[in-house]
Design a protein around this nucleic acid. Structure first.
Length: 288
DNA sequence: GTGAGGCCTTCAGC
DNA sequence: AGCTGAAGGCCTC
């Protein structure tokens, strides 16, 4: 049975812009698991259409509202970050793209996998992890797997993770799974910590540097000022904003927070998706 | 503090 | 077919 949610949400750009790696596409539907609840969504005339297990419609609606941060005021955000032609053009192209509010462990797991990889491959790694250690769910005639919890993944050995073709990331994911599942690190607590403190905790994890920490903080901890800088964003900052290419991560992200303000993370996501998509379409090959 | 090299695996391009 | 380079980085030296 279908339900509808009136919301300003561009599902495609939100879920295809490298924030999440657990959703599966089936035709125009996106299928995933939020807080253990299997759910599928697609674009509707006004807002979105969704399906979920019977009797869970209201719960699903609340979960979607949280996951896609639908309470964020996009007009205010656009006004704040819309400092120049580049960002405004990205906003125009992807109006309705949201920053997600994922489960912090799922987000950390995904971005540990992202290291020196590409979006397509990250999806596959997360999918293999889910099938091997996550719980199977059903929704209508589709079956899907939730991402493994830290406890579920803690049962895996480092070799298990290597066998899932995670490569050098296996060691990092293994140690984080142990730390989080044991309760020695409570990622959810970071949601009430200041940005700087959360950054220190996250970068203390093996295999987590500034970039991955910023991704986790932006996409799951609720730090909208986090401004992850990967090779694309760095190219954008040096080519379009004329910042020096030998600038440190610290300097570049500090500049971005000053320039874009407290919603710098939104600016980053629009820039990233826009810059990457337009370069891909143009077929440009650029070495950083 | 800063920089070069190596790393697992996959995939596109030649 | 086999090779090369790159992919939303990070660690070691």
């Amino acid at each position: 049975m279908s339900s509808y949610l009136s919301a300003r949400l561009d599902i495609a750009s939100t879920l295809d812009s490298g924030q999440t790696f657990g959703w599966q596409k089936s035709g125009e539907w996106y299928i995933g698991v939020i807080s253990g609840l299997p759910i599928k969504i697609r674009k509707a005339d006004i807002g979105i259409e969704y399906e979920c297990p019977e009797g869970q419609s209201e719960l699903a609606s609340a979960e979607l509202n949280t996951y896609f941060r639908l309470s964020d005021n996009l007009d205010e955000i656009y006004k704040t970050i819309g400092r120049d032609k580049l960002v405004n053009s990205a906003i125009e192209s992807y109006n309705g793209m949201r920053i997600t509010y994922q489960d912090p462990w799922e987000c950390l797991m995904s971005f540990i996998c992202s290291s020196n990889s590409n979006i397509q491959n990250i999806h596959k790694m997360v999918q293999r992890l889910s099938r091997a250690f996550g719980q199977k769910r059903f929704l209508g005639d589709s079956e899907l797997w939730a991402l493994p919890t830290s406890k579920e993944l803690a049962a895996a050995t480092e070799q298990d993770l290597r066998d899932l073709r995670l490569g050098f990331r296996a060691k990092y994911l293994y140690s984080s799974a142990q730390l989080v599942s044991s309760g020695d690190l409570n990622l959810n607590d970071l949601r009430t910590s200041p940005y700087e403190h959360a950054r220190e905790i996250l970068t203390s994890l093996d295999g987590v540097g500034n970039k991955i920490a910023d991704c986790v903080m932006l996409f799951s901890i609720g730090k909208l000022e986090a401004f992850p800088i990967d090779r694309w964003i760095k190219r954008c900052l040096t080519d379009e904003y004329k910042l020096k290419s030998n600038s440190s991560y610290e300097l570049l992200s500090g500049w971005a927070r000053d320039y874009f303000g407290r919603y710098a993370g939104y600016a980053q996501q629009y820039m990233f998706h826009h810059y990457r998509t337009s370069n891909r379409i143009a077929g440009k090959k650029v070495a950083l």
